[in-house]
Nucleic acid binder design. Structure first.
Lengths: 161, 161
DNA sequence: AATGAAATGAGAGCGCG
DNA sequence: CGCGCTCTCATTTCATT
C-alpha cells in the first residue's frame, strides 16, 4: 500500500486548523471556522487537501492502555552486531510487525534502535525479549527502561505560531 | 481540569470497537455496527461510555512532522542528581510543559527520564538542551539518539482478541 | 439493563455566485 | 472564498427482549 505524500505549502490558516485537529478532531468545522476566521466549507477544503497530501496521516482514538489491561510501558534500546542494509531492513520489518511494539525508531548514537513496548505483564515482556532479542542472532545487547509514569504521551507535533 | 477516569468492564464488543477506532475514528457508527454485529445506537452508547470512563482519552488527527517543518525526532535519556519527590515532580512538570517534548516517561533503569523530542533543526535541539538540561541544576547527564527512520509510530495499544 | 427501529437534528459535502 | 442546499451521519425517543 502506497502512502500518498507530496509536499504542499501550508499557510497560517492550515497550521491553525492542524493545531485544533491534533488536539480534538471531532471539533465541528463550523467551530474551527470561527476559531480561525474562515467559513466551514473553506475549513473542509483545507482539511481534505491536507489529507490528500499526507500532512494529515490519520484520524484516531487515543486509548488508555491501563484500562484495557496493557498496563506496562517499556523503553528498549537495541544494539545490533552487523549494520548491513539488509540486516537493518530485516530488523525494521520484524520490530514493526510486532503489535506490542508501539513505536520503533532507527537511531544514531550508542544504540541502533529504540522501541516503545506495551505489554500487560512483565512476564509477557520477558517472553517478548526471548523471541525478539535473544532469538535474533544480530542483536548484540539491549537495555530496558520500565515506565513508572507516563508523564506526557501523544504524537502532537509542535507547530509554529 | 480533571480527567475522568474510572474502571469499567469491557466486553468483546467494546474491544472490537476500540480496535476500529484506534485505527480510524472517522469510521461511521453504522459501519462499525456492521463490523461488530451491533446497531449504530448501541455502538454510540458504548463509545460514549468508554469516553466518560476515560478508556478513550481523545480523538485526534495524526500529523506528519516532516511536512510541517518539524523534521527531526530525537530520543533523550535524562539522568538526574537528586530523586526527591519534589524535584522529580518539578522535572516532570517542566518537561511536560515544553511543546517540543512530545512524550515524557519517568522510568527505572540506568536513566530517570526518557523523552521524545520533535524539532525543526539540530540547532533548535541544541538550544533546547541548553535551556532544559544545562540550565537545570538537577540534570546529571543526558544521552541523545537522533532518529534516522521513524520505522513505526503511533499510540495504538495491543488489544486482546 | 441493553437492544434495535424509527424519528429528529446536527454536521459534512457539493455546486453556485 | 462564502452562501445555501442536500444528504449522510450522529443522536434521541421509544417499544421490545
Amino acid at each position: 500500500m502506497s502512502k500518498a505524500s507530496f509536499a504542499i505549502t501550508l499557510d497560517s490558516f492550515d497550521l491553525a486548523i492542524l493545531r485544533i485537529l491534533q488536539r480534538d478532531n471531532s471539533t465541528p468545522q463550523r467551530v474551527i471556522g470561527e476559531a480561525v476566521n474562515l467559513s466551514a466549507p473553506a475549513v473542509q477544503r483545507r482539511i481534505r487537501r491536507m489529507e490528500e497530501a499526507g500532512v494529515i496521516q490519520a484520524h484516531v482514538a487515543i486509548i488508555d492502555p491501563i484500562q484495557v489491561g496493557q498496563a506496562i510501558t517499556i523503553f528498549v534500546e537495541v544494539e545490533v552486531i552487523s549494520e548491513t542494509a539488509d540486516l537493518i531492513d530485516a530488523a525494521k520489518r520484524e520490530f514493526a510487525s510486532v503489535p506490542e511494539v508501539q513505536q520503533c525508531y532507527y537511531v544514531t548514537g550508542e544504540a541502533d534502535f529504540v522501541l516503545v513496548v506495551v505489554v500487560p505483564t512483565m512476564s509477557a515482556y520477558e517472553a517478548l525479549t526471548r523471541r525478539l532479542f535473544f532469538g535474533n542472532n544480530n542483536v548484540k545487547r539491549f537495555r530496558t527502561f520500565v515506565a513508572m509514569d507516563r508523564v506526557k504521551v501523544g504524537l502532537a507535533v509542535p507547530l509554529p505560531g
